[in-house]
Every structure is written in C-alpha cells, then in structure tokens.
C-alpha cells in the first residue's frame, strides 16, 4: 500500500534546524513499487554472529577484552508487523546508540562525557519467523546538542530495519517511557503529535525483567503493509 507520509515527519521541520537546507522543496514524484522495490533484501554478508545482538559484550569481545559495558542493563524486545498486522519474519534490525554517559564512539562526537572502553554502541539482530526480536544493551544517556543553544536529546536508540521488501525500509529511533526530555525534543517532535511520539516509545515490561540482571523494555514496530487482497498466497504490491 502507499506509504502514509502522514505517519512520518515532514522533510522540512524548522524546529530541527539542520532539516532546513536538507529538505527538498518540490513534491515527491509518486510512482508504484515495481519488482525491484518488492524484492526481498539479500545482503550477502556473513550470518549474524552470537554476540551481534549483545551490545553489552560485543565490542569488548571483538577487542579481546573480557568485560561488559557500564550502565543500566536492559533488554529491548518486541514484534515487527506490517500495517495489516502480519509478522515481518527474518528482517534485519541494525542498532546504534550512545553509551550510558551519553557519549558516542564517534570521531565527531565532542561531548565531554567519557567513552566506555567496553562499549562500541552498535549491533544487529534478525526477527524470528513470528516477527519477534530482542537485543541486550545498556540504557543510553541523554546528551546535549546544538540547535536552539544547548538542547538535550532524550535517551534513544537508533534502529534501521529491512523487512520482506525493500519498499519497507525504515530508520527510526526508540525512546523510553517516562523520559521528561521527550516532549522537549525537536527531533522527536518532528512527527507532530504525542500519539505519533508514543509509537516511537518503548514501554517498561516488568514481567519480562531478567531477575537480578536486567530491566526489559518492549517496543513493537509497524512496517509498510502489502496491499490487501483475497489472493493471500500471491505476493501483491506494497
């Protein structure tokens, strides 16, 4: 089905200043997805490794260290479905984030907070046959950024998704329930209303905590749906 642009932030969102010169002025040219856009992503990269979904350990392990990242230990889990409620099986989710102090492991991050020598800040996982996923990480910290003077990003994790067709491609950010910085954030608020912000907010899932180990947050995601059809066995247009 058509991408509902009303679900997404507009390209031009002047409250987020960088968007001003990076947003097209002409209307997008609407075209129907073709065989390429409906193709299933195949990456040709190596299979997902056993620690790829564990940001607490994967950077240290890759550097021959035994330790674990500092910060509140969390699991983020949920289900990825399409707009018709059907699970998105075996989709790739890529993950990146700041450390518990709000510092990114990136040459361009000038924030004074320290790096964590045990934390890289990236990972990846696949959804299972029922669209479910989970990854282990530490809760990232908030951090300041220049926009209207010093503004503060709420704690967030960047997520990149490939579904069962290229046309479902999505990059988003997940915020955490109850963070008082969310309503103040010009980037979160590019989506326009609190209901849409809530669709990017993970909920505390106490029933799924790891006792004496980690808190758990649930975050379900919705990708574009295929066109509804009576001929369910035949792949149809997005």
């Amino acid at each position: 089905m058509r991408r509902d642009r009303g679900s997404h932030p507009p390209a031009y969102a002047p409250g987020y200043k960088t968007s001003v010169l990076r947003s097209p002025r002409a209307a997008l040219l609407s075209i129907e997805p073709g065989p390429l856009e409906l193709s299933r992503p195949v990456f040709g990269t190596e299979a997902i490794g056993p620690l790829d979904h564990n940001l607490i350990r994967n950077f240290a392990a890759a550097n021959g260290l035994q330790g674990e990242a500092l910060g509140p230990r969390i699991v983020v889990h949920g289900r990825v479905v399409d707009q018709n409620g059907r699970p998105v099986p075996h989709g790739l989710i890529e993950i990146w984030q700041a450390n518990a102090a709000g510092k990114y492991r990136h040459v361009k991050d000038g924030y004074r907070a320290p790096l964590d020598p045990q934390f890289g800040g990236c990972g990846r996982c696949l959804t299972d046959a029922d669209g479910r996923y989970q990854f282990f990480t530490i809760q990232p910290g908030p951090y300041p950024w220049p926009n209207n003077g010093s503004e503060w990003r709420p704690a967030h994790i960047h997520l990149s998704l490939f579904g069962i067709a290229f046309a479902q491609r999505l990059v988003t950010q997940v915020y955490f329930e109850g963070d008082p910085l969310i309503p103040l954030c010009p980037i979160a608020n590019t989506v326009g209303d609190p209901v849409a912000v809530d669709r990017m907010t993970a909920k505390l899932d106490m029933a799924r905590q790891g006792p004496f180990d980690h808190l758990t947050y649930r975050f379900d995601m919705v990708l574009r749906g295929a066109r509804q059809t009576f001929f369910e066995t035949r792949p149809e247009g997005m």
């Binding site: 997404h8 990114y104 990136h106 361009k108 800040g121 990149s160 988003t172 980037i187 669709r199």
Partner: peptide, 15 residues
C-alpha cells in the same frame, strides 16, 4: 495500522 514513524539517522549514523 500506522507505520512506525521515521526519524533522522543523525550525525553518528556511521556507528
């Protein structure tokens, strides 16, 4: 269902 909204990939997308 409504699609999960997109958000910018940000300056640290390279990570």
């Amino acid at each position: 269902l409504k699609e999960t909204p997109s958000q910018t990939a940000g300056p640290f997308v390279h990570i």
